[in-house]
Simulated scan of single mutants.
Amino acid sequence: MLEENLKEEILELYETLIDNGITFYYGSESIATGEITSLDILEDNIIKIELDEFQVYEISIDDFIEYHSKEGANYHTWPDIRNFDNKISNMNNV
C-alpha cells in the first residue's frame, strides 16, 4: 500500500509543475497520445489519468513511468521534475 505522505508529495509536485508551465503527456500502444489534464494515485500502485479533459484511464505505475512525457521544462523546473520522477519511481518500492 502506498504511503499517504508519498502520494501527497507526488500530487503536490505534479500541481507545482503544472503551475510552472509543464505539460504532461501520455501515449502508449493501447492509449492514444493526449495531454494529462488530471492525475490521481489509487491503491495498489495504480494511477488514474484524465487525457484532454475527456478520457479517463487507470494504468500501472510502470506504464506511467514508461509512457508519460513532459514538455516545457526549463532551468527552474528541473529540480522539481527530478524530484517528481524519483518519487514516482519509488512508488514501486513502497
Rank of each mutant, 00 (worst) to 15 (best):
E58G: 06
S69L: 11
N92K: 14
S28Y: 08
I49R: 03
Y75E: 15
Y25K: 12
I81C: 10
I10N: 02
M91V: 14
D63P: 03
L51F: 01
H76Y: 14
N74Y: 12
Q55D: 14
I10A: 04
L51D: 00
F54N: 11
V56I: 15
K87S: 09
D62H: 13
N86Y: 13
N74M: 06
S60D: 14
K70S: 10
I61G: 15
I49D: 07
Y57H: 15
I46L: 12
D52F: 08
I22S: 03
I31M: 05
E43M: 09
L17I: 01
M91Q: 09
F54V: 04
E71D: 12
I65W: 05
N83E: 15
T23H: 06
I47E: 02
T37Y: 03
E53W: 06
I10L: 03
L2T: 11
I88C: 11
D62M: 13
Y25E: 06
N45Q: 11
I41L: 15
I31K: 06
L51P: 03
I88R: 06
I41H: 04
F24G: 01
L39C: 08
E66C: 10
E9W: 04
I88Q: 11
N74T: 04
V94F: 10
I18Y: 00
N92P: 00
G21F: 02
I81F: 07
S28A: 12
M91S: 12
N74C: 14
I61H: 01
S69C: 07
Y26K: 09
H68Y: 15
N5A: 13
D80L: 05
I31P: 08
I49F: 02
M1H: 08
V56K: 13
P79Y: 07
D52E: 13
I65K: 14
I59W: 00
I18T: 06
D40F: 02
Y26V: 09
K48E: 15
K70P: 00
V56C: 05
D85S: 14
E12M: 05
L39I: 03
L13G: 05
E3R: 10
I49V: 07
E9M: 10
E43L: 12
L13P: 09
I22T: 05
N92L: 15
G72T: 03
L17T: 00
Q55H: 08
K70D: 04
I88D: 12
N90T: 05
L11R: 00
G27I: 07
Y57A: 08
A73Q: 14
Y14P: 07
S38W: 00
T16E: 10
S89I: 07
I88S: 10
D19Y: 01
L13Y: 02
N5M: 11
E12N: 14
D63N: 15
E43F: 09
M1G: 13
H76M: 10
E9V: 07
L6V: 12
F84Y: 15
E58H: 11
N20M: 04
I59Y: 09
E43P: 03
M1F: 06
L51Y: 00
S60C: 11
L6S: 10
D52T: 10
L42V: 03
I59H: 11
L6A: 09
E50P: 06
D19A: 12
L6Y: 01
Q55M: 07
G27M: 08
E58F: 04
N93E: 13
E35P: 04
